[in-house]
């Protein structure tokens, strides 16, 4: 376990439109609660992505910043090097699409992604907006996924990734699944933010880097999860 957990937030100047900072704050809080000191680095899109971080986060945003972000990440190469070193990554919404081989630009034109996930995305017919609930891949051993989606993307999963979950309510990837994972990378369309709604997902990311984590008081997390799932799941 590293003496200090380093959290790298990629391009908050471009991609942080939907409370993405929350994922950073939840990781910090859950590490802190286990006595692990954290250091968070906010990386501007004009600056290089450090290669020595432990957990990386990239968030959602508008079409134009998404294209800019993808271009800069491709040119930079720092994230690729970090992933090869074994760092963990959570990529949300626009950031999730960027991790694939291709995604749809503002006119639907194909834009090259950074190729860290075997997925390709395009624009769907209509915007998916609302609460989502999904059963997580049993191999991960996590409780029901909950969150809020707001996107026009349709994402096809290639053989190099596994679906993160099967949707019960909501659209997700558009084929009955939501998100995907491969190695230590998790991609999802979920805001909420995802780690605030799904603390077990936060612990999965942290655990990949720190090893097994002791349980902590999840009272407020659980209260919110229960309320949200009650509001959307069929009784």
């Amino acid at each position: 376990m590293p003496s200090e957990l380093s959290i790298v937030w990629i391009y908050p100047d471009l991609l942080s439109t939907y409370g993405d900072q929350g994922n950073v704050l939840v990781l910090e809080q859950r590490a802190r609660a286990r006595g692990i000191p954290t250091r968070t680095i906010h990386v501007r899109s004009s600056d290089p992505v450090p290669q020595q971080g432990d957990v990386y986060l990239i968030g959602g945003g508008e079409d134009r910043p998404q294209i800019l972000g993808a271009e800069r990440l491709r040119r930079d190469g720092g994230l690729h090097a970090a992933i090869q070193r074994g760092a963990a990554l959570l990529a949300v919404c626009a950031g999730y699409q960027i991790m694939g081989t291709v995604f749809g630009g503002e006119e639907g034109q194909p834009v090259s992604g950074v190729g860290l996930l075997d997925i390709s995305s395009g624009r769907g017919e209509r915007r998916a907006v609302g609460e989502l609930a999904a059963d997580v891949d049993p191999a991960l051993g996590l409780p029901t996924l909950t969150g809020f989606e707001n996107h026009m993307g349709v994402t096809r999963l290639g053989p190099g990734v596994r679906p993160l979950s099967r949707t019960v309510v909501g659209t997700g990837n558009g084929d009955g699944t939501e998100g995907c994972y491969a190695g230590r990378i998790i991609g999802t369309y979920l805001h909420g933010p995802a780690l605030a709604r799904n603390p077990a997902l936060a612990d999965l990311l942290l655990g990949w880097v720190t090893g097994p984590l002791p349980a902590i008081d999840d009272g407020w997390y659980q209260a919110l999860r229960d309320e949200r799932l009650r509001a959307v799941l069929p009784a």
Binding site: S16, G19, D20, G22, F148, P193, A196
Partner: peptide, 9 residues
């Protein structure tokens, strides 16, 4: 707005 994510901003 039905999404409360903004609270985290």
């Amino acid at each position: 707005g039905r999404d409360t994510s903004w609270l985290w901003d």
